[in-house]
Amino acid sequence: MTTPDNWQKSSFSGGADGNNCVEVAVTCGTIHLRESDAPSKQLTTTPTPLAHLLHGIRSGALRRI
């Protein structure tokens, strides 16, 4: 697996340089997500499953318990 080196901070992080945000990087069709305060822990996925997850969140199908 390729380790990404071009992480981008979420626009919802408020623009601060703090370690309290989500970062994303893309490598060869793979999407990597991590929290900036725990960069060694990453979630790796591909576009289709991530799109389904985001759709479920936006539609309300996935709600907090």
Rank of each mutant, 00 (worst) to 15 (best):
D37R: 13
L54G: 07
H52Y: 06
E23G: 10
C21D: 12
R58M: 07
D17F: 09
L62Q: 08
T3D: 02
R34M: 06
P4L: 03
R64A: 12
R34N: 09
K41V: 14
L50W: 12
T2N: 09
P4Q: 04
K9F: 03
L33Y: 04
R34H: 09
M1K: 03
S10I: 05
R58A: 13
K41H: 10
T30M: 09
H55P: 01
P4E: 05
G14E: 10
S10W: 09
T2H: 08
H32G: 02
K41R: 13
F12S: 12
W7E: 03
F12M: 08
S10A: 09
S59Y: 03
T2L: 09
K9A: 15
K9D: 13
G56R: 06
P49Y: 09
T2M: 08
S10Q: 03
G15E: 13
G29F: 01
G60P: 05
I57S: 07
S59V: 06
A61I: 14
S36W: 01
T2C: 01
T30Q: 12
I31C: 06
R63E: 14
K9H: 06
L54M: 13
S59L: 07
L62N: 04
T45W: 04
G15D: 04
T46W: 06
P39S: 12
T45M: 12
I57Q: 03
G29Q: 13
K9R: 15
A38K: 05
S40I: 06
R34A: 11
N20V: 05
M1I: 02
G15N: 08
G29Y: 00
